[in-house]
Amino acid sequence: MANQAITADMGHAPAFHLAEEPHHPEGHSTPLGFWLYLMSDCLIFAILFAVYAVLGGNFAAGPSPKDLFDLNLVAVNTAMLLLSSITFGFAMLSMARQRKGATLAWLAVTGLFGLAFLGIELYEFHHMIHLGATPQRSAFLSAFFTLVGTHGLHVTFGTLWLVTLMVQIGRFGLIPANRRRMTCLSMFWHFLDVIWIGVFTIVYLMGMLR
C-alpha cells in the first residue's frame, strides 16, 4: 500500500505516508483506545479479586463477613449503581437525538445516583472502622478495603469526570469532542457496574455463605 502511494506521487515530490491516512477523522480511535484502557483496568481488578479470594478467609480471629456485612445495605447500593447505569443510557439516547437539556438532566440524575452509592459505601466503611474492623485488623479486611475501596475510588473519579463533562456540554454544547467524551464516560460507567457485579457476588454474597 505504501508503495502504491509513492508510485502515484512519483511525478511530484515523493510523499512518504499511507494513501488512506487523511480519511481518519480526529479522535476516531479514541473509543478503541479507551476500551483498551478499561481492559487493563480490568486486570487490576482481577488481581485484587484474586487477592481477596486467597485471603478472604484469613480473619486473624477478628470479625468475619457475617459480623460486618449488612446485605440490605448492599442491595440498596447495588440498586443505586444499576439505576445510574440506565439513566446514563438515557443520557446517551438524549445525546443521539441532539437534546442538550435532556442530556444534562439525565447526567445530573446519574451523578446523584453515583453520589448516593458513594455515600452508602462511605457510611459502611465508617461503620466498620468504628467497630474496629480496620484494614490493619486482618488479611481479610486488608483485601476487602483494597478491592472495594479501589472500586469506590473509580466511582469517585467517574463522578468528577461526569461533573466536568456537564460543565463542558453546558458551555460548548454537544460538539463532536464532547460526544466522544460522553462515549468514553459511558463505557467507564457501565464498566464499573460490571465490576460491581463481581464485588457484590464475590465479596458480599460469597462472604455471607462462607
Binding site: 477523522p25 444499576l82 440506565i86 443510557g89 446517551m92 439516547l93 463532536p176 462515549t183
Partner: peptide
C-alpha cells in the same frame, strides 16, 4: 457527522436495549 459515519460508528443502543438490559 456524515463524514464520520463510515469510519467511526458511535456505539448507540436503543431505548429497547437499555430497558431489556435493566
Amino acid at each position: 457527522h456524515g463524514h464520520h459515519h463510515e469510519a467511526h460508528e458511535e456505539p448507540h443502543g436503543t431505548l429497547r436495549d437499555y430497558v431489556i438490559g435493566f
